[in-house]
């Protein structure tokens, strides 16, 4: 069964540890600016959410890439950029609805989440499971339960 990164914004504390471990694994340095995952922290509104590639079923980036450099990794299901084929046109970056692909000017390279070859560092280090690496069908069940819980609480408030 394919696994996916499930994001639980309500569990995020905006500590940004995911950015640190991601950059360390992929660049050898602690550098949030080079992380494949970023926490969008709306501190005044008390809303924090890790943003990362959704590894879409029909990836816009893959469709739009003129060099055919983007394909799906069969083992992990990750949408992957093949460096040797990439021409650096950045169409993938422009078209991604989640802003999940970044361009590194110094290296003339486009980078995105590769699910760490099936062992995502961000999920391993997240202290509160705001990022989890779970079986795709479990993820749906868990999400449904969350939504149901919220609805239940909302109804409780309305009825009072």
């Amino acid at each position: 069964m394919e696994k996916i990164l499930m994001i639980n914004p309500e569990k995020c504390t905006a500590c940004r540890r995911c950015e640190l471990v991601c950059s360390a694994k992929h660049t050898g340095e602690f550098n949030p600016a080079r992380s494949r995952v970023s926490v969008a922290a709306f501190l005044d509104e008390n809303f924090y959410m890790p943003l990362v590639c959704q590894q879409c079923d029909q990836p816009v980036c893959m469709e739009i890439c003129p060099a055919g450099a983007i394909s799906r990794d069969e083992k992990t299901g990750a949408v992957a950029i093949e460096e040797a084929k990439c021409v650096g046109c950045r169409m993938c970056m422009l078209s991604c609805p989640f802003g999940a692909i970044s361009y590194i000017p110094e290296e003339k390279k486009l980078v995105k989440c590769d699910l760490c070859d099936g062992e995502p560092e961000c999920a391993l280090f997240c202290p509160w499971n705001a990022i989890e690496y779970v079986e795709a069908d479990q993820a749906a069940v868990a999400k449904k339960r969350q939504v149901a819980n919220r609805l239940k609480d909302a109804l409780k408030e309305v009825r009072v």
Binding site: E10, T13, A14, C15, R16, R17, L20, D44, N46, P127, W128
Partner: peptide, 28 residues
């Protein structure tokens, strides 16, 4: 208390995001 909040790289998250929703001390 609205939610717990962490400093950079901290797994403890002792920070308290708080909102006083109404009244003369309304603030966040």
């Amino acid at each position: 208390l609205v939610r717990k909040k962490a400093c950079f790289s901290c797994p403890i998250s002792c920070g308290r995001a708080t909102v006083i929703p109404s009244g003369k001390y309304k603030s966040s």
